[in-house]
Simulated scan of single mutants.
Amino acid sequence: PDYSVSTDEMQMRTEISNATTLMEFVLLGFSDVPNLRWILFGIFLLINFSFLEICYVTVTIPRMLMDLCTQKGNISILACATQMCFVLMLGGTECLLLTAMAYDRYVAICHPLRYALIMNHKLCVQLVAASWSCGIPVVIGQTCQIFSLPFCGSNRIHHFFCDIPPVLKLACGDTLENEIAVYVVAVVFVTVPFLLIIVSYGRIITNILKMLLVRGRAKAFSTCSSHLTVVVLFYGTASITYLQPKPSQSEGIVKLTSLFYTILIPTLNPIIYTLRNQDIMFAVKKLLTKFET
């Protein structure tokens, strides 16, 4: 026997050798509330979204519906990695698009006469293309880094989709390097865009306060209200998931906040944005009047 090898090293080797037999994970999802599974199935089945939201929830909703229906959460490692990659990619796209929309509102309120010149078709296409494409290589690299780790012991993921925090908990050995990489990517795609949004709205608010007409202030605030609501909801829940220290993360809180930014907020987005439409508001008021009578 090799007495130069410590007990910890022997245990690590045993765990790594056992990890090679792990071929799939089990998504526990909402198995802790079996009485609500058909209610949740109905709610998630009836949700409608815009294009980004369609892509976003297509990665999670069909899988969740199947798990709720069959009460099985088996998912292969390849499928788990693919799901994680798409969730991260689309989440990063959402962050960057919200930042581009903040810039659009800044130009509209602070430079209204030059709006058509600055926010021309070419710039809009470039902003959208950059939002969709610039995070792809980073996300693919991070996903490959995470799933190159050995997994051992339990294969039960306490989540309804393959997200970074619960998957990293199942990895063997030291995951410090991976956790640092997660924080760096979260800072680049969550914190930096959020700071840019804050700067944009700081200038917007300063400009609005300089307006003499109350009606002009109300119109300016109305222009920003829907976008600002989505920003607060999305960034608030995403920050709790990816910027919270790992030891203090509760499985229940992570699952709940993930449910918000992957499903509930995309559901609310079309409602929040359409409430600014005068025709929509008129139709809602007319409908409520009919119910009252």
Rank of each mutant, 00 (worst) to 15 (best):
N178W: 00
I109T: 14
L228H: 04
V33R: 04
R63N: 04
T267P: 03
P150H: 10
Y3D: 09
T143Y: 08
L65V: 04
Y273A: 02
I271A: 11
I272R: 08
I253P: 00
N178C: 10
P193H: 04
Q249A: 11
F160M: 11
H111Y: 11
M101F: 13
H159R: 05
E251T: 09
D104I: 06
L28P: 00
T93L: 06
L233Y: 08
S200H: 07
L78I: 15
S225P: 00
Y201R: 07
L96V: 11
V232F: 14
H159I: 10
L176E: 13
W132V: 07
F189E: 07
D163A: 08
G135I: 02
A116I: 12
I205K: 13
T70I: 00
E179N: 10
G173M: 03
D2S: 11
V107M: 12
I204C: 05
L233T: 06
C80A: 12
T58L: 12
S148I: 08
I157P: 00
G216Q: 11
I198T: 06
D32H: 05
S248C: 07
R105K: 15
L46D: 09
L243I: 03
I197F: 07
W38H: 01
S131P: 01
D174T: 09
Y235M: 15
R13L: 13
I140Y: 07
V128P: 02
N155T: 12
H111C: 09
E292N: 04
W132C: 08
F234E: 08
R203N: 07
F147L: 00
Q142Y: 15
S76A: 00
Y242I: 13
L123I: 14
L36M: 03
L45T: 14
Q278Y: 03
V5T: 15
I197R: 02
A81Y: 09
V139H: 01
L209Y: 01
K72C: 04
S133Y: 05
F189T: 10
M281F: 13
I140N: 00
C80I: 04
D8Y: 14
I109M: 10
L90H: 01
G202R: 02
L176T: 15
D67T: 11
Y106E: 03
F44C: 10
C85Y: 06
A19I: 00
P193A: 04
P34W: 06
S239E: 11
K285W: 05
K290G: 08
Q145S: 12
G42P: 00
A19E: 03
S131L: 00
K255Q: 03
K290E: 05
S258E: 02
R63P: 05
Y56M: 13
Q244D: 14
K122Q: 08
V26Q: 02
I180P: 14
M66K: 13
L287E: 12
L98E: 09
F44L: 13
Y3I: 13
A130V: 08
E251Q: 14
K219R: 15
C55E: 13
L243R: 01
D163C: 04
K210R: 12
S239K: 07
A102E: 04
